[in-house]
Design a protein around this nucleic acid. Structure first.
Lengths: 129, 129
DNA sequence: AAGACATGTAAGAAAAGTTAACATCAACTT
DNA sequence: AAGTTGATGTTAACTTTTCTTACATGTCTT
């Protein structure tokens, strides 16, 4: 079982997360709306993100870039078990044909590359160069 | 050599550091004034603290509690090399007699305990229970 | 052409952070 | 005993960040 207290401790305000992920505040909040992350709130309603949240945001970014839509990414992120395929078990029902096409096209380009990145990696190695 | 990019990446605004250390903003800024930490600044002058800074603040807190003064702690923190004594090489010139007494009194109570804590510990284990 | 999706942008309000100054109180110093 | 110093609290005025809500936009998708 993963160490939750470290990975999911609420630490970062949205500004830092923007820096860390190169996403806009709008995007970060939208992904929350869409259920991809659930940052904590301070008593005064400010969001505080954990390393785990940042990790999920980075994953989201990657997969959006590869042509997945948010519904697909939601499924991806919800899978606790790591798959071995480069793009694991995508729920095609959630994708339009155009999206599937983009996805497959990217599959070709990405073939043979790491791909499964974040879901496997533990700790913080991901956040720093 | 320690991994600097991870440990010293500027991440936390002062509010989070207050939470993490249970120090007041006043204390945190004062310790900076005294040269115990040197947090980064954003372009708009806001302080951003690293894990390393937080670690030094926790160390500061511990040793203040044990009766050291800030000058003494500054020396302590500046020693890159870890000593084996429970309280390593304290510069007595920087302490008043009363302080030295408190220190020694605490030495007795603390004898046989870890003591060297943070300077040895790497990574983030320290920040989470 | 009309929707849906992902993102941008703007406005107004609340919270957090900054510097600087003065206050306090215990512990030394003389 | 009176005066200093060290560490911290408090306050004030100001700047920056974050929040919510709403409307705008461009690119698919149907």
């Amino acid at each position: 079982m993963a160490d939750l207290s470290r990975q999911s401790k609420p630490l970062f305000p949205i500004g830092v997360v923007q820096e860390l992920t190169e996403l806009s505040a709008r995007q970060i909040r939208y992904y929350e709306d869409q259920g991809l992350i659930k940052p904590e709130r301070t008593e005064t309603k400010r969001r505080l993100y954990s390393f785990n949240d940042v990790d999920r945001l980075l994953t989201t970014k990657e997969y959006l870039d590869k042509g997945l839509n948010i519904a697909g990414i939601r499924h991806l992120l919800d899978e606790t078990v790591v798959r071995e395929a480069v793009v694991p078990e995508i729920d095609k029902k959630d994708m339009t044909d155009g999206e599937l096409y983009k996805l497959l096209k990217n599959q070709l380009k990405e073939a043979g590359r790491p791909g499964k990145t974040s879901l496997i990696q533990g700790e913080l190695g991901r956040f720093f160069k």
